[in-house]
Simulated assay, not measured.
Amino acid sequence: MSPNAPRSSGGRGQGRPQRSGRPQPGGGKAQGGPRGAGGKAAPGARRGSAKRMTNDVKPAPQPPRRGPGPIKAHPGTDVHDPEGVRLQKVLAQAGAGSRRACEEMIAAGRVTVDGEVVTELGVRIDPTRQVVHVDGMRFSIDDELVYIMVNKPKGVVSTMYDEEGRLNLADMVGPREERLFHVGRLDLETEGLILLTNDGALTHRLQHPSFGVQKTYLAEVRGPVKRDLGRNLRAGIELDDGPVSVDSFKLVDSKPGYALVEVVLHEGRKHIVRRMLEAEGYPVLKLVRVQMGPIVLGDLKPGKNRRLTRGEVQQLMAVAGL
């Protein structure tokens, strides 16, 4: 089925990750996944079953979450940087609208920089260190920040480097100047969605369970599935490292001797989905992560990768409370 903390929000040049080009499994180079002899896809990518589990099933919608909005700055804070770029230009480049539309947003008081409402069109800012919100939604304005979705195939290690020389996530995206970090892990046998980024603040919030960012998995198990399985998992079960519960559970498909179930949770413990289902008597035959917060794997093929759209990045920031 299918961090090293990156840069911080400090000043220019502070907290920036060292550059290195490490790719990722599941995502091929910019134009496709790693290839073996004869141009075949990366090992472990099972097209038929992966397609059935990721394309034919619509992941459960994520519950609406609101970020805290822009952090209030101290009254009178001067956000103008004489060496910076005009705010309306930065917003237009970030996809907020045309230059004219961005000027109107600023004049209307809808834009904040570092929590300070800005209404003057002559304000300049530094996109690499300052935070901009429009109507309470944060915009990614630093062009050096990268956000990539990878569909990790089975057999690929969820690291950016492997001492044993096994296929890893770096191999999925090819050589890059940025030092990328993976958001969470998938075990060797698990396929699906992994995000790579050099945005440290976002990485932390997406991984830490206290922020409640949900992950959706599709699991193949031997059927039939008992009727009270979902109720038991929602109520919580005891594992050797403590109790755990799912946010939601759904039986997607059932045939003689086979069942496909959807599990949604914000836990990030090792092998958590496999251990939960096995504890209830259902060892996992195949596991794919199909969604993380608002980001859906969709029809991205195993071994392939793509950059997130500006809209997807904004949605991620909103669900992470940035």
Score class of each variant (00 low, 15 high):
A318Y: 04
P302Q: 10
R234L: 15
R65H: 06
L218F: 12
S9N: 14
E164T: 06
E144W: 10
F139E: 11
V261Q: 01
F249L: 04
G15Y: 08
H266V: 01
G174E: 03
D143E: 15
L229E: 08
T128V: 10
R222Q: 14
G36S: 05
A108V: 07
E280H: 10
V221R: 00
Q291M: 10
V183M: 02
R7G: 12
L195E: 02
L277R: 02
R269F: 02
Y217V: 02
R35P: 06
R138P: 00
V156P: 00
I237H: 01
L145R: 13
D135F: 03
L218G: 04
G13H: 08
L91M: 08
G311T: 15
V173Y: 03
L169W: 05
P70L: 05
R129M: 12
P283S: 03
M292E: 04
A259H: 03
P294Y: 04
G223R: 03
A37Q: 12
Q315A: 15
T77D: 14
L287P: 07
V173R: 09
P256M: 09
F181E: 12
M105H: 14
V284R: 01
G97K: 04
E163W: 01
M137C: 08
P209T: 06
G109M: 05
V313Y: 06
K286N: 11
H74A: 15
K51W: 14
K255N: 13
G311Q: 12
V263E: 05
A37Y: 13
G21I: 11
G200S: 02
V284Y: 00
F181I: 03
P34V: 08
A101Y: 10
D56C: 13
A92K: 02
R22G: 15
G174V: 11
Q62N: 10
V213W: 01
D228L: 11
P61N: 13
L297A: 09
V183G: 00
L188R: 09
A170W: 09
P34T: 00
Q130P: 00
G165R: 08
S20K: 14
R205W: 06
G115W: 04
L251N: 06
L300I: 11
A96K: 09
Q314T: 07
